[in-house]
């Protein structure tokens, strides 16, 4: 459903990404991982239509993206800047639904349903600054869910919360997105997270960022923070991705990735 063809972007003389090619199928969860400064955010902004890439094309359902595409939502790392402090959680979640042409009653109903899915039905009237970081990011996720995008982009979505909240949010994202059949492109610098969350891990090189690895993740589902992470397959894949991120030559496992189960 999403296809990047030779996507490149330069800021002045700085090449952020260089001919990135990537195909994402409907319903896939693809994690993009890379060292800091590999142009991950540039890639995401190009797909979201927030910047116009200087080269290449982004195809969404076969059509080139021009401006911000319909049926796409973004969850940013910085929830406190991305949520509107003058609005309640409910109003924040309901706001993008104006684009769907829903009246207030239906917007509120949809927003409340989305808040329920992230376990915040009781906090609908609260304002973002009355909430913890984890709760705020849940609101951001609910906002994206309520919009019911076909493609969900997540830019380091769990980078600003504590470790335990992070695990909760990873599981929450996997659960609700599987439920909606959403396609997800999640950008992270965390190797562990990319393997845990993704159906596929795409590794970007240092700037100018380009695809240096594209590994399928074959781990048994549903994933579990403890059991999945102690699987041999998980550990091997994590090492493999880690090597790629550090720019080392991959040591191919003759047995393939993650075929064993416990």
């Amino acid at each position: 459903m999403l296809e990047l063809v030779d996507l490149s972007h330069t800021y002045g003389s700085y090449r952020a990404i260089d001919r990135v090619n990537l195909k994402v199928a409907q319903g896939e969860v693809v994690c993009i991982v890379g060292p800091s400064g590999c142009g991950k955010s540039t890639l995401l902004r190009s797909i979201a239509g927030l910047i116009k890439p200087t080269g290449g094309t982004v195809l969404l359902d076969g059509k080139p993206v021009d401006g911000s595409p319909e049926n796409l939502a973004v969850v940013f790392q910085d929830y406190s800047r991305s949520l509107y402090p003058w609005m309640s959680a409910l109003a924040n979640v309901g706001l993008p639904l104006r684009r769907r042409g829903l009246d207030k009653k239906r917007r509120d109903a949809a927003a409340l349903a989305a808040l329920e899915q992230v376990g915040l039905a009781g906090a609908a009237a609260k304002f973002p600054w009355e909430m913890s970081g984890g709760m705020q990011q849940r609101v951001s996720i609910a906002r994206a869910l309520a919009y019911q995008p076909k493609l969900l982009l997540m830019d380091e979505p769990f980078g600003s919360v504590d470790a335990q909240t992070r695990e909760e949010l990873e599981d929450l994202t996997l659960r609700v997105c599987a439920h909606h059949g959403m396609t997800i492109l999640l950008i992270t610098h965390d190797v562990d997270e990319s393997v845990y969350v993704g159906d596929r891990v795409v590794v970007l090189s240092k700037a100018p960022g380009t695809v240096v690895g594209d590994l399928p993740v074959q781990l048994p589902g549903p994933r579990d923070q403890i059991h999945t992470r102690e699987l041999d397959a998980f550990v091997r894949l994590r090492a493999e991705v880690g090597r790629l991120v550090r720019g080392m030559t991959p040591q191919r496992n003759p047995h393939g990735y993650g075929l064993e189960t416990r």
Binding site: L50, S68, S82, L95
Partner: peptide, 14 residues
């Protein structure tokens, strides 16, 4: 006004 606040709304197609 935070640029990210504006980008968020733009990303939803506003």
């Amino acid at each position: 006004v935070d640029p990210l606040a504006k980008e968020t709304l733009r990303s939803f197609g506003f």
